[in-house]
Nucleic acid binder design. Structure first.
Lengths: 248, 248
DNA sequence: CCTGAGCTGCTACCTGGGTAGCAGCTCAGG
DNA sequence: CCTGAGCTGCTACCCAGGTAGCAGCTCAGG
């Protein structure tokens, strides 16, 4: 692999689609592939040590990977993301150097390419155009996380489940994508609850006629009703603050 | 104010301390001050419209400002940050252009300087060194938010309160800073609960002998005990996952 | 000086969701 | 073919925390 992955056209095509590299010329992608290596992780591979994550930047080519947080004392796990094709991870370590506290577990056999942190940093110095998309990505991520914190504080579990389902519903295909077929405990980890409670609400949605569930497959039956579930949280008196106008 | 705030040395000194501008030469700060204006916001000023936040980038010079999220339907507010000297806000809007969903309320009379978004963007183009610190700031913020999401899912309210107190405790001065003197409802907003529940736990801490509370002032009496409160969450069986080693 | 807004400390009540446990199903591996 | 791991659907129980309401305090403004 002296030439890295340059010979594999499919990798090049995949990078071309990646929002991170959209602005970059083909030559930059080629030099990136020259310093890349590929790897296949079978289902259930767990990346718990910081060795991988401290020294390598990963881009997902195919498969499905769970990015999660876990603390030994509190026996609870929270899933931050389900990573699929064109996602990447470890960008915070790449930019700041210290280890992240995120873990990874492969949900379905995945192919990845990785670049060593040092190589990636050198490459970034030579391809400063990458900064724009990175900043964009970070801003988006920040805003998503802020919303997530707020949701956890202000919405009950069934509303958070409703939101999760809606966010992953594709109107065109009329299907729930990405999270469909995942186990109850993974869905629970995505909205910050336990398997039992999640299942309780799923059964509830099924009983009302919002969803149909069979064999791990969730099918949308009544989307408007699901939206209703999301909105009728509480119709309380509105925000009443005095607004002192701009003084300057 | 044709010359902006250039004449005010104190602003210059303050910018000099700001982590965002640490790497920048004096000249850059001067040109920044030339396009800046200042403003004083009295206590209880509320910035609820996106007009301010959409068109201006703010830097706090003095005072205390609450940065929070609020949704009319759910009558609940979550405080994302207490901003003081050297904090700034609206950087996401600055970088991406769309309005943020954060609101601001002045807790104690504050002085700010602001720069119009267009001017600030032009200035950034001319001072590209600013990008490094911005990326740093975003990465830190992302990681903080990830932790916060996890805390909300995995810790109970009294542990989150303990954590809040510890994070704001200054060992040197032996005092709780920043959040001390704030009302119960603001403290509640910071950890995602309600005033009643927050007060319940505060009284609990007082009864155990961790804190002393009088007249809105919280005094630390037994820090180790507070740490204990934080750690004894649950001592459950450890993470037991199979770790399939790297295959490549 | 009074008055009322806003805060604290507290009680009493209720419920959403966390916990535990189990039967039955599927499905991969031997 | 069987076996067991892992999943689902479900029941029953319990408690942390959300809700409501109130008395008493402080303090700024008239």
């Amino acid at each position: 692999m002296n030439q890295g992955l340059l010979q594999y056209g499919c990798y090049f095509e995949t990078l071309r689609e990646n929002i991170l590299f959209a602005d970059l010329p083909n030559d930059s992608l080629k030099t990136l592939l020259e310093i890349s290596k590929n790897q296949i992780w079978p289902k259930k591979t767990c990346i718990l040590d910081s060795d991988h994550t401290l020294h390598r930047f990963y881009i997902v080519i195919s498969g499905k990977i769970k990015e999660y947080q876990y603390e030994i004392n509190q026996n609870k796990e929270l899933i931050q993301n389900i990573l699929i094709k064109n996602d990447f991870f470890n960008i915070c370590t790449l930019l700041k150097g210290h280890a992240s506290r995120l873990f990874y577990e492969v949900l379905s056999s995945s192919e990845l390419i990785y670049i060593s942190m040092e190589d990636m940093r050198l490459w970034m110095d030579e391809n400063p155009k990458i900064i724009g998309p990175i900043v964009n990505y970070l801003v988006k991520k920040t805003e998503k996380l802020e919303d997530r914190v707020f949701d956890l504080c202000s919405m009950d579990t069934s509303s958070r489940l409703a939101k999760l389902l809606i966010e992953n519903f594709n109107i065109k295909t009329n299907k729930i994508e990405l999270i469909n077929g995942l186990s109850n405990s993974i869905l629970a980890g995505l909205i910050g609850t336990t398997r039992a409670v999640l299942n309780r609400h799923l059964q509830d949605f099924k009983a009302i006629g919002i969803l149909n569930i069979e064999g791990g497959n969730i099918e949308m039956i009544n989307l408007p009703l699901l939206f209703h579930k999301l909105q009728v949280l509480s119709e309380k008196p509105p925000h009443e603050k005095e607004f002192l106008p701009n003084l300057s």
